[in-house]
Design a protein around this nucleic acid. Sequence first.
DNA 1: CCAAAACATGTGAACGGTCACATTTCTCAA
DNA 2: TTGAGAAATGTGACCGTTCACATGTTTTGG
Lengths: 344, 344
Amino acid sequence: MGKQLVSGPKKQQTTIRDVARLSDVSYQTVSRVINNSPNVSPETRQRVLRAMRSLNYKPNKAAQMLNTNKSQIIQVITLEGKFPFNIPLPEAAGKAGYSAIYAECTMDTFAETLDTAASRMVDGIILYAPKLEIDDDELLELCNGIPLVRRDYAIGSNKITWVGFDQVRATELAVQHLLDLGHEQIAEVTGDLNAINAHVRHSTVRKFLKLHGLEPGPSVEGDYTTYERANRSGYECTVELLARGEPFTALMVANDSMAIGALYALYEHGIHVPDEISLISFDNAAHAQFTIPPLTTVNFSFDVQNKLAFQFLFELIEDPDTKPHQHVLLPELVVRQSTRQIGW
Amino acid sequence: MGKQLVSGPKKQQTTIRDVARLSDVSYQTVSRVINNSPNVSPETRQRVLRAMRSLNYKPNKAAQMLNTNKSQIIQVITLEGKFPFNIPLPEAAGKAGYSAIYAECTMDTFAETLDTAASRMVDGIILYAPKLEIDDDELLELCNGIPLVRRDYAIGSNKITWVGFDQVRATELAVQHLLDLGHEQIAEVTGDLNAINAHVRHSTVRKFLKLHGLEPGPSVEGDYTTYERANRSGYECTVELLARGEPFTALMVANDSMAIGALYALYEHGIHVPDEISLISFDNAAHAQFTIPPLTTVNFSFDVQNKLAFQFLFELIEDPDTKPHQHVLLPELVVRQSTRQIGW
DNA sequence: CCAAAACATGTGAACGGTCACATTTCTCAA
DNA sequence: TTGAGAAATGTGACCGTTCACATGTTTTGG
């Protein structure tokens, strides 16, 4: 299996029994103090706490885990890419003794990662895997019975709890905004189309345009799995789009990081935004209001999503029989200066 | 101490003994297979491996930790702020069974965070804490004997291993570049001056200018502890700088995220970069080549730093008596289009 | 061909906690 | 005063693994 495990330094740890001896109680009483058990007299508790402090005692999590089958660890997993946003453990969870293990994995190492998680007895899993196409049952099987909350738009899955943004709505907001401004030739720089959210957006654009009797404009598939790639990809895709020579008056870009690159590509070609081309993107990232010009974009409240994901996960940990439920968050259009009425 | 620890589901785990029974060997032999001990006959090993697979057996890390005093966990800590860059666990470490726990903490919760780390028996700590002013001995004391590598410019500390960038050199590169272009009035938007790197840069600018017989220009202190804050802070500080009315022909900004905001503030005031003002910043972040205009900046190879930090940490874990050593990485100037010869 | 070393395998006791249950001490109403 | 229930505390077993050491089995060389 693993690498040879070399034993660590055998420096005698201070244990519950050392504390017990010093405070003249049984080890069980010390355990009670550690776990805030109510049945300890105030004086004893104080005495024990004092002893713990003077010995610099720290409970051994491994021993606790072995008994309780709880690690107080939440495993956060990203599949094929990094998080486009932060995923901090809620403060309350931290206070309660929880830690988070982050892992980036690929399709190949996904099962392995979940096995490690099981090995570590993590209490729950937060998964961000927009590129994962897998049956709910199969995924649950892989999770070895560990509570799971997906943090993406896992539309169609109803045996798993997830919290994601309404990508259809997001797309419609963006397209409608462009239509309202009179645009009829709308080009697209998409995200990786094997990611569910990018895919949904792309097909929604086409459907929505068709619905309004319009032909979809040219589109190029990009890569927004990391910041770095997104910047460059936005640039390169836009260059390619311009090279094709097909006309368009508005450009939809998959996210604000890609928009940075797109903006620069347009600038390089001497195309003015928004006078000649309107640019719209998604995320409402921190920099979106400081680009030149500031971006019209669709806002996703990632911190709300994050908070909910953890909340749902802790509910599930508390009661594993909680019915899985799906939470769809609504995006909002944020109009800035990268879009404009056509023909001005 | 902690919250009440509720015992988890007592679903009978499959253990080493189940595997032993099925493969008709002793549990010790199974343990040997798990740990790749050489003294197991090939046939026996195969038989055991087969049994493990068929039982979907996963070694219990808690039990292993309890014995070996090793958790195969690396604790990554950021003090007062987030990482301005990614800190992935090296792939090799992941393959070897290591995981990483990330924690953001404040000055107040720092000791607590380190205690939790000790509780969890983490094998090593990577620390990013440019705002930490603490005696080496004191810090080592807080670490409870856990190997530590600092990932910042902890200049002056020699009892601790760290890997950081030469901030003096970085600053000199930037200032020299501006001087070469004929700039003599250089303004500054700094980072948080209680962060060591920002502080060093600021004072280096002043020293360096004085050395060349020049007066330092106006400066404003910003906040670059997170992406979000950096963007906005860069904007606001630049606005403030302009409001002061003191003349300057070049602006140094603490990092590329802040530069986004600075660029926008200048744009908003109708000031052309680089024709009217040259802008230079630090980091060479992914977006630096796609801003308008692309940024002249000082490159820090964060991924090299990251790799080294982990490498040093693993060396220290391997042999705790390794002499602490300090590794200073050299930054390089990357000239793009945000700086220009004065008077053009 | 046999002793000695090398290899393969097994047994009991940790590791540092928690659990279940037993025991002692206290409190208070009849 | 006493007995019963509650509160406080203690004891032994166990969680799933590795360690130290013991035992059995093979190989090797003189």
